[in-house]
C-alpha cells in the first residue's frame, strides 16, 4: 500500500524555486494498474521518482506499507527498490557494457542471489519475453522492442510487488508498444501493481485507474471504464 499525504516537491534552482509537485494526496492499493497522465512539465516523472524511492518529497508524507519513507536510510531504500520495485524506462536504460542476460542478472547481484540461481532465473525471464535467442546480444544489437523486453525482464528479476514504468512505449513503434503494454497488463493480472506514466491518452487507458496531473497538482483521479485492449486497440496506431 502506497500513501502520499500533502506531498510536495520543490526544486531550488538558485534564484528561482520551482514547485514540481503540490499537495499530492494519493492512495494506491496492491494489484492496481494506475496510469499517470499529463502534459510535459506537469510533474509526472517527479511523482514517479518519488513513488519509486529515487527521490524524496520536500513536504508531506509518503507511507509505504505503513513505513514512513522519509525516515528510511539509503541502505533501506535501496533494498526496497531492489527487492520490491521494478523500473521500466522510456529509453530502456540497459547497461550497454553488458549483454541481455547480464543486464537481467544485475538486480539479482545486489539481492545477493547465488551465481547459478540468478543465471537460471535470468534465462527463464528472457525466455518468457521471447528473447531466448537474444540472451548474449548486447543492447546495441537489439531492436527497441527487444531492449524494452529485456528491461521488463530485468525489472522482474527479484519478483517485485510494484513496477514503475515511465513512458514505456515512448520510444517504440506502435506494434512493439502494443506488445510491451500487453506484457505489462499480463503482469498486472498476475497481481503485480503497476504505475505507468504516459502522455498518450489511449495508452493511459490501458490502466484501471487514471490520475491526471497539471502544474504539479492532481486534477482528476478516476477509474477507467472503457479500458484499451493493447492487442486489439493499439495495433496499427
Amino acid at each position: 500500500m502506497i500513501k502520499l499525504e500533502n506531498a510536495g516537491k520543490n526544486y531550488d534552482l538558485g534564484a528561482v524555486k520551482v514547485a514540481a509537485l503540490k499537495n499530492i494526496n494519493l492512495l494506491i492499493e496492491k494489484g492496481e494498474f494506475v496510469s499517470i497522465m499529463g502534459p510535459s512539465g506537469s510533474g509526472k516523472s517527479s511523482l514517479l521518482h518519488i513513488l519509486g524511492l529515487l527521490d524524496k518529497p520536500t513536504s508531506g508524507t509518503y507511507k509505504l506499507e505503513n513505513y514512513e519513507v522519509i525516515s528510511l536510510s539509503d541502505k533501506e531504500l535501496s533494498r526496497i527498490r531492489n527487492q520490491h520495485f521494478g523500473f521500466v524506462f522510456q529509453s530502456f536504460n540497459l547497461f550497454s557494457e553488458f549483454n541481455a542476460l547480464d543486464n537481467v542478472i544485475m538486480p539479482m547481484i545486489y539481492a545477493k542471489v547465488s551465481s547459478k540461481e540468478r543465471k537460471e532465473k535470468a534465462k527463464g525471464l528472457l525466455a518468457s519475453m521471447g528473447l531466448e535467442h537474444r540472451m548474449y546480444h548486447f543492447p546495441n544489437m537489439l531492436s527497441g522492442g527487444e531492449q524494452q523486453r529485456v528491461a521488463i525482464a530485468r525489472s522482474l528479476a527479484n519478483n517485485p510487488d510494484l513496477i514503475l514504468a515511465d513512458e514505456p512505449t515512448g520510444n517504440l513503434p506502435s506494434h512493439m508498444g502494443a506488445k510491451i503494454l500487453e506484457i505489462l497488463d499480463k503482469l498486472n493480472k498476475e497481481s503485480v501493481t503497476l504505475i505507468m506514466v504516459t502522455h498518450n491518452e489511449k495508452i493511459g487507458r490501458c490502466g484501471k485507474r487514471m490520475i491526471r496531473l497539471k502544474d504539479g497538482e492532481i486534477v482528476s483521479d478516476q477509474v477507467i471504464k472503457n479500458r484499451t485492449n493493447p492487442l486489439t486497440d493499439l495495433q496499427g496506431e
Binding site: 519509486g52 529515487l54 535501496s78 533494498r79 527498490r81 536504460n93 540497459l94 557494457e97 530485468r154
Partner: peptide, 16 residues
C-alpha cells in the same frame, strides 16, 4: 552518470 542512476534504480546503495 547514467549507469550510476540505473544501478541505483535497480537496487544499488550509495555505498555499493
Amino acid at each position: 552518470k547514467k549507469n550510476i542512476g540505473i544501478m541505483m534504480a535497480i537496487g544499488a546503495s550509495r555505498f555499493d
